[in-house]
C-alpha cells in the first residue's frame, strides 16, 4: 500500500481511510524499535533530508531515528547551519536540494504554509514537521495512534485540547484528526488564546478547564509557547497555572481512566503539574515512543513500499 498523495502537508486533507492506513502501518513498524538490531532494509539507498527552520529536539530526532531504522540516509539541516542565514529564499533552497535528488524532505518552518510552498517546487514527497501556527500532522497522527492504542478506539471518545489554541499547530491538526475519526473534540483556554471561528474546524469551545474535562476520555495539554507570544495573552505564569494548569486537584473532575497527553516539551508547573505529567494516566512517553513508528509508517507510505 502507498498513500495516494505526493506529500503529507496537513491532517485536514486526510480521509479517515488514509489515517487508518497510517495507523495500521505504524503498528506493524512499532516492534522494530523493540528489537536488538533496530533496523529494517526498507528504505536502503533512499535519501531523506530533515530541514528544521525552527528549534526541535523531539520531532527532529524522531524523524531521524525513523529514517535510520529503515536504512535510509538521513541528513539533518538546521537553520543555523543552512544558507538561509545568507539570505537564500525557501524557493532557492528547495531547488538546490532538488538538484541533489533526495527521496523525501521533512520540513519544519516558522511560517504557516512554508512546507506547502516547498512542495510546489519539489518533485519528491514533502512531510510537514510543523508549519508556523498551522498544522503538525505527524504529531496528530502519533496522538491518534497513542489514544487508539490505549483506548482501543477513537470513535465516540471525548477529547479535550487545552491551552493556547491560537498559536498551536498541534491543536489544529488534532482537531481535524480526532473529528475525522469520529471523536468529540472540545477546546478550552483563555479567550485571548481561542482563535476566531475555531468551532468551524469541528470542535466546541469551553471556558473552564474543570468543566471541559468532565466526562473526558482524553485530555491533551498544550505547551505555553512563550517564544510565540510577542505580547502576553495572559497576565502571568502564576495566573495561567492557577486557572488553566492541570493538577491533581482539577483532574479529580475527570473520569479515573482519563488519558493525559502532551506534545512536549513540557513546561512543568505551568500547563501541567509534575504529578499529572508523571502520573499513571499520563501517555506522554508513549506518545514519544509511538512517534518513531508513525514516522516510519509515513516514510514507508510516501517513499518506500510497493508503488501502485
Amino acid at each position: 500500500m502507498r498513500l495516494k498523495r505526493k506529500d503529507l502537508l496537513d491532517i485536514e486533507d486526510l480521509s479517515r481511510d488514509e489515517i487508518e492506513l497510517i495507523m495500521s502501518t505504524a503498528k506493524s513498524f512499532r516492534e522494530v524499535s523493540d528489537r536488538d538490531i533496530k533496523k529494517v532494509p526498507t528504505l536502503r539507498g533512499k535519501t531523506i533530508i530533515n530541514m528544521f527552520y525552527e528549534p526541535s529536539t523531539r520531532t527532529r530526532t524522531s524523524f531521524e531515528i525513523a529514517a535510520k531504522r529503515m536504512s535510509a540516509d538521513a541528513i539533518n539541516i538546521s537553520v543555523s547551519t543552512s544558507s538561509t542565514v545568507k539570505g537564500e529564499t525557501l524557493k532557492d533552497t528547495a531547488k538546490n536540494l532538488e538538484a541533489m535528488n533526495p527521496d523525501c524532505i521533512v520540513i519544519r518552518h516558522a511560517s504557516s504554509g512554508g512546507p506547502h510552498m516547498l512542495a510546489r517546487y519539489l518533485k519528491c514527497p514533502v512531510i510537514n514537521a510543523g508549519d508556523g501556527t498551522h498544522e503538525h500532522p505527524s504529531q496528530a497522527l502519533l496522538d491518534l495512534f497513542t489514544v487508539n492504542d490505549a483506548k482501543g478506539r477513537i470513535e465516540g471518545l471525548k477529547v479535550v485540547i487545552a491551552g493556547d489554541i491560537a498559536h498551536s499547530r498541534v491543536a489544529r491538526s488534532n482537531i481535524h484528526g480526532f473529528s475525522t475519526m469520529g471523536a468529540e473534540v472540545r477546546v478550552v483556554g483563555p479567550p485571548t488564546m481561542i482563535p476566531v471561528g475555531i468551532e468551524r474546524l469541528g470542535c466546541s469551545v469551553v471556558d473552564s478547564l474543570e468543566e471541559a474535562i468532565v466526562g473526558a476520555d482524553v485530555v491533551m495539554m498544550l505547551r505555553v509557547q512563550f517564544e510565540r507570544l510577542h505580547r502576553p495573552l495572559f497576565p502571568s505564569i502564576r495566573e495561567y497555572s492557577l486557572v488553566f494548569g492541570l493538577d491533581t486537584e482539577k483532574l479529580k473532575k475527570a473520569p479515573p481512566d482519563v488519558a493525559i497527553l502532551h506534545p512536549g516539551p513540557v513546561n512543568r508547573g505551568v500547563e501541567i503539574s509534575p504529578e499529572v505529567a508523571d502520573g499513571p494516566y499520563s501517555l506522554i512517553l508513549d506518545q514519544v515512543k509511538n512517534g518513531v513508528a508513525v514516522r516510519m509508517a509515513l516514510f514507508y507510505l510516501l517513499v518506500g513500499g510497493a508503488k501502485e
Binding site: S112, G132, H134, R169, V196, H230
Partner: peptide, 19 residues
C-alpha cells in the same frame, strides 16, 4: 492589527495565519 497578515476570521484560523 498586531502583526496580522490577513483578515481575522475562520480562514485565518484554519490556515494558521495571524488575523
Amino acid at each position: 492589527a498586531d502583526g496580522g497578515v490577513m483578515h481575522e476570521g475562520f480562514t485565518a484560523t484554519r490556515l494558521g495565519l495571524k488575523g
